[in-house]
Design a protein around this nucleic acid. Sequence first.
DNA 1: TAGGAGCTGTGACCACGGTCACTGCACAGC
DNA 2: GCTGTGCAGTGACCGTGGTCACAGCTCCTA
Lengths: 205, 205
Amino acid sequence: MDFDKSILSFLKPELVDTILAESEIKAFPKGTEILREEQYVKVLPIVVDGLVKIYSRFDERELLLYYIEPAQSCVMSFYAALNNTPSKVFAVTEEDSNIILIPVQYLPKWLQEYPKFNELFYHQFNLRYSELLTTISNLLLDKMDKRLYDHLIRKTEMTHTKTIKISHGQLANELGTAREVVSRVMKKLETEGKVTQNSGEITVL
Amino acid sequence: MDFDKSILSFLKPELVDTILAESEIKAFPKGTEILREEQYVKVLPIVVDGLVKIYSRFDERELLLYYIEPAQSCVMSFYAALNNTPSKVFAVTEEDSNIILIPVQYLPKWLQEYPKFNELFYHQFNLRYSELLTTISNLLLDKMDKRLYDHLIRKTEMTHTKTIKISHGQLANELGTAREVVSRVMKKLETEGKVTQNSGEITVL
DNA sequence: TAGGAGCTGTGACCACGGTCACTGCACAGC
DNA sequence: GCTGTGCAGTGACCGTGGTCACAGCTCCTA
């Protein structure tokens, strides 16, 4: 399949060709569950375009951890793949996405032969680690109104559109809270003139 | 300096010798601040013995992230060292500790030449990532009484003693809450017969 | 057209924990 | 002695958000 190789331009062209020769690029429609918790991972995903949502499930509650944007990889599945241990998180495509699937057996070899490839994953690990830190900071310090508003802002930034199609219940899941709480806070944000909403659509002003 | 090399036995002896030839092993007394936030890192620490506490500061509040036990390393400072970026966390010795300090300039070379060395850090990253996940889970789901009690239990497990010398204020910092809250909950744990305390000492029953 | 499913809006209730304002205690140094 | 400092204990207050119990809405399908 054709795609814009410039997305991997930070890697040496020689490495890009090696990767593409052995890997599959697959299209996943929006909403596909590409990684289940406790699943043993056979391929390592690198997102080419689209958007993948990574979340965890604690008890009955869920919490969005971060998004994987183009040219990024899911380090949890990377480590799970390298060591044949189950993954601890879930991954779902938030938009139609094309994803490179690298078979795990090539990883040790490429990691050793291509320092840039190695660096890529250290960088990804660091990125996710930082995002978890800010998630922790938000949980510890911020009230729901700020958490929800920031979350909506982030969504508009990533999808490059001011209007989001999502239900209060889904938002509640992403923030690890209850549906009623989201409804309450959304109403507050609406009266504050920060958003408008009607029937499953939210517009950030 | 002498120390028990068996602690690094998971690495090839050849690699251990290489590391020790170029690195310094330094003794840090309990309570030494060995890593400040926003500090540029020139050496990579690997704990030989003792215990190092890693925490972060959000606004005015602190939160303990995890402990570094013998044969472990601080991946945040690892990444910071590799890329010459400032660290985002603090590190303080919780006990007298001996720590190997590897000068950063050897890292790229050794990472490429010794796959085991590389694996060590992937493993550490994954470990910390998992610990941050459980921290998030605790913040999201658990009440203070459970968080505090679990925290005390963990402390006794790591120091191999039932009695902990710590003030309520310090505990509050580690849990990201207020001193009064810790006092309140400690009283509750005491009446429940889970702990006893007198003047800066807490004994877990 | 009646019923069901899924979503939103709301009011009431209440536990948890953050904050304030103290008091009491121990211990150190002057 | 007195005073300052640091820690523990406590009562009062109250905002946030989790929960329950509904009611109302749209849309789909039998």
